[in-house]
């Protein structure tokens, strides 16, 4: 036998791999930008949600009640909601997770056969899409909030602190979502798991109202779970910037991401053996 191993090209190190992920991120951004109209259309729903909840918070005197307990004014609650909605709406919903459909359609064959590990390809693509949507939603949401409840004291520091935590949370969120997705290598459908994960993020993460406004028993549950770091904390930093909270939130998000790596890698390694793509 013959082919000379030494003559073969080898994939490069960490830096080159990071460059590849960046390249995937950029091409995804450009590809999505080809459909700006559709993206803008999606903001219609965001506007409605913001509007409805503004009315609901007013009607239930949420602001007055919460202010006493937590120090959020009603304006701040709406700005909080702007941030959490941008966070949640920018994620792929349970129906559009790509891994599942790629496994089903067999398109995964191309992605697996590249000198860029499939999960990393996916990370680049998802981050590209999410950053685009997040930026757009945040912008539209802020305009709506300005119109509906007027400005609050926002600082550049708050924007920076919250967005940096959000960015890390995107990676952590992606890691866990991907770990769930990869189970589609051997179970037929992961929609249910995705749906429940997203719902837990929304409710236990404090998407609609800050955790501090939750009834006691629900608040206890939410505070015992890690979902709050992905939603509540970045949004809180957006409204109330605080260096110490930022450190806590950043650390927690890093921990969530790292904790997800192990299950992801294990499930992925096992899953690869189960790949049975379409077509003989």
């Amino acid at each position: 036998m013959a082919a000379d191993r030494q003559a073969l090209r080898r994939p490069g190190g960490l830096l080159l791999t990071a460059g590849k992920v960046w390249a995937v991120l950029c091409i995804t951004l450009r590809s999505r930008l080809a459909y700006v109209g559709e993206l803008l259309l999606r903001t219609l729903f965001l506007i409605l949600i913001l509007f409805t909840f503004t009315q609901l918070w007013h009607a239930t005197n949420l602001g007055k009640n919460v202010l006493v307990a937590t120090g959020f004014t009603i304006q701040e609650l709406i700005w909080y909601l702007v941030f959490t909605e941008a966070l949640m709406l920018s994620a792929a919903n349970a129906r559009e997770i790509e891994v599942d459909s790629e496994v089903r359609s067999g398109d995964i064959a191309y992605r697996l056969g590249r000198p860029l590990p499939y999960p990393l390809f996916h990370l680049g693509a998802r981050l590209g899409e999410r950053l685009l949507r997040f930026g757009l939603y945040l912008l539209v949401g802020m305009v709506v909030a300005l119109v509906v409840v007027g400005p609050i004291q926002l600082s550049l520091a708050g924007l920076w602190l919250s967005c940096s935590v959000a960015l890390v949370s995107f990676v952590g969120d992606w890691i866990w979502t991907f770990a769930i997705s990869v189970t589609s290598f051997w179970i037929e459908d992961t929609f249910g798991l995705h749906l429940l994960y997203r719902r837990a993020l929304m409710i236990l993460g404090g998407m609609l109202i800050p955790l501090s406004a939750y009834p006691e028993w629900l608040g206890h549950i939410a505070r015992a779970l890690p979902f709050q770091y992905l939603v509540y904390y970045p949004a809180r930093l957006f409204v109330h910037p605080d260096g110490q909270v930022w450190l806590l939130a950043l650390g927690a998000n890093l921990a969530i991401a790292l904790a997800g790596l192990l299950p992801l890698l294990v499930i992925y390694r096992i899953g690869l053996r189960f790949v049975s793509t379409q077509g003989g």
Partner: peptide, 17 residues
């Protein structure tokens, strides 16, 4: 063996070639 590599064990390296 493809180019001397076991494809399912050395997929990434094989993919480069």
């Amino acid at each position: 063996r493809v180019l001397g590599l076991v494809p399912w064990h050395e997929r990434t390296m094989l993919a480069m070639n």
